[in-house]
Design a protein around this nucleic acid. Structure first.
Lengths: 214, 214
DNA sequence: CCGGATCCTGGATGATACTG
DNA sequence: CAGTATCATCCAGGATCCGG
């Protein structure tokens, strides 16, 4: 038996043998947002050593979780259908881990892909279904996202939306907004969330749409 | 920053910092079935070194995921409410990893706790809701489970039920039954699943009740 | 025997430099 | 850009030991 195997006939152990190594699920997390090049992955995981990134990409490929897709001259990594089915795992980890976050420290970065997954895991489809379609331009830390909600559908793209209904910038306060610890209007009042464009009431709608349940 | 941290402000990274180390989620898996003593955990994870088990228990305790509960003179480990909320994570990993299992190898064991989680992750509450309450005595590898299904409720205990509606013994064939690859009656016909007591038709019901979706 | 603690070694991880 | 190569470090794993 390979040394790193757990010696059990069990789905959990098999899953951990495939994606349980350090950094592996973070690569999957970013690829869940979209196909990425090697350099994009490295940028989204600033602390990963390049040899580890290269090794993980090979292992994930061997396990049938990701594939290399040559596009003209550049190489793109993308999830296979089986790899995409890790989405429930990553979203569950995101929702659970989010509640263990405290205030961000200086050395902690907020990447667009990580924030996209955070919002996906916080998305309340039931609540959104009864709300009008809304487009948000959210700047959270250094990450700018174009967030479109329409009924039970959610689409998040990188970059700021040109014609958002609401544009806002948030720092650490985003955590307490998403956890429900802090309501939208107090967050604006204290400056924890800065409105850049659009009616303040739409931030209440945002808070209804995205919520990490306690 | 601690060396083992990922340097991102993100729920996924936080979760992996808390339960991403080797063996940690397997301890959680077994504790999701019920409180366990140190020796019971060691027995359910035959290949874990005792120092690693001790270290993980301390770390999980420090993270507020498990707690030590002194019962008279013995020490019991159990999940905290926050730890119990890892259940969606573990079940999602179980369902995903189950599909990557191939035939069990000789050195792979099947523990009662692992099998309990497997069945929980495969439980189809919607299908079960329209079926009559049923009690199964399932022997899978060396693990004997008492499985009671009543409407959308599922209760699994260790040991064989005395008065089950259906008693059966399965080996590797259980995987193909749960995956839908193999139907109940062919599994009986080929001897992959051995009926010990009760009508064969109840194995069809079992297969409808427990299914790892592809 | 239970519930660990201690010591030691090998391999995985991490930092850095380098290359087609 | 997309990785290798090299070297240092640290953790996992195995064996052993200890206190109640």
């Amino acid at each position: 038996m390979a040394a790193r195997e757990y010696g059990q006939y069990c789905g959990v152990t098999r899953a951990l043998e495939l994606v349980g190594e350090r950094w592996a699920l973070l690569i999957v997390r970013d690829l869940l947002v979209g196909p990425r090049r090697y350099g994009e992955l490295a940028a989204g995981l600033p602390r990963i050593p390049s040899n580890i990134l290269a090794a993980r990409l090979k292992e994930l490929q061997g396990a049938g979780i990701i594939r290399r897709a040559p596009r003209s001259r550049i190489i793109i990594y993308e999830l296979t259908p089986y790899g995409r089915e890790l989405e429930p795992v990553v979203l569950a980890l995101s929702a659970w881990g989010f509640r263990a976050l405290d205030e961000p420290r200086d050395e902690q970065v907020v990447t667009p892909d990580a924030m996209t997954i955070t919002l996906r895991s916080a998305f309340q489809a039931d609540a959104a279904a009864s709300l009008p379609p809304t487009r948000y331009a959210a700047r959270i830390g250094a990450a700018e996202l174009d967030v479109r909600v329409s009924g039970r559908a959610l689409a998040i793209a990188r970059g700021a939306a040109e014609t958002a209904d609401l544009a806002f910038a948030a720092g650490p306060g985003i955590r307490r907004l998403l956890s429900g610890e802090l309501a939208a209007q107090p967050a604006i009042a204290t400056g924890e969330i800065e409105l850049l464009h659009g009616p303040a009431a739409l931030l209440d709608r945002f808070a209804l749409t995205f919520r990490v349940a306690a």
